[in-house]
Design a binder for these strands. Structure first.
Lengths: 147, 147
DNA sequence: TAAGATTGAAATGTCAATCTTA
DNA sequence: TAAGATTGACATTTCAATCTTA
């Protein structure tokens, strides 16, 4: 019988270590943090990306997402452009410097994922891990909305 | 071929949601946060538990662990006792109130794990998830010590 | 010298209140 | 009224400096 407390422990601690190692290498080599890279990846892959979209993709609050975008703008990696379709929000766009940084960052990111996730697992174990994580993440029990 | 970025995303976001839901229920029903419960579980299951042991088990820094224990002591759920074997450190012990709270908290904790992890998965998928998480967490690549 | 621990400053997230526009 | 976003106050963590004891 599977001990769920052990699963929780391995899940949380591995996430902490994984995040920490990728973050440390990004800071050391490119002077950028993983949170910023994550946000830039969302902006880069989301058409007409708003602050709200960042918060949903990263599972953080809208307030936290707004502050994260503040940091990106201060570093000149992204800009808020007026949204012609809805004047309450802005459309987020990466600057040239942001695109250039992201291009280098994803190389480090992918390399670390390969080292920390792919390398230790067999091909089938990786497939099963991916499948199970996708299932629990998108399970209805994870999406209870409080109106 | 498995997309590691999707695996990373599902891993990190599910961990965030899972932590958030358990934490919210613990605060609502027992007025305690998940970080405190986690620390108390370590104290309860570690003989002669020191602050250093907390930091290792929870994958946080020693400074962070020290402050977490400060909060437990302030709430009167744990005490630092003199360590006869080494006067640099203390031995952490749960108080009666701490034991009583922990007993209630693990019921909520286990119930949430069942709902969020066990319920959405088949028995074999859960076994495979547990196995893969254990492998990546204890892989040598996750344990590179910087001297 | 090194190990265990503590402390204060800085970073990052949540929460609640508020503002603007739909 | 509700939705998108911003802001300030607060909480928790990391990092570095420091203290005490091995």
């Amino acid at each position: 019988v599977t001990n769920l407390r052990v699963v929780f422990d391995d899940l949380v601690r591995f996430e902490t270590v994984l995040w920490g190692e990728i973050d440390a290498r990004l800071r050391r080599e490119l002077d950028v943090q993983l949170g910023s890279v994550n946000a830039m990846m969302v902006i880069d892959s989301t058409p007409e990306c708003r602050v709200y979209d960042i918060s949903q993709s990263l599972a953080i609050t809208v307030g936290g997402a707004s502050q994260a975008i503040d940091r990106l703008e201060k570093a000149a990696w992204c800009v808020r452009r007026a949204n012609p379709a809805d004047r309450r929000s802005s459309i987020l766009e990466l600057t040239d410097a942001g695109h250039a940084l992201l291009k280098k960052a994803v190389v480090v990111f992918d390399d670390e994922l390969d080292r920390m996730i792919r390398a230790p697992l067999s091909a089938s174990a990786l497939t099963q891990l991916a499948s199970a994580l996708h299932t629990v993440r998108h399970s209805p029990t994870s999406h209870v909305q409080s109106t």
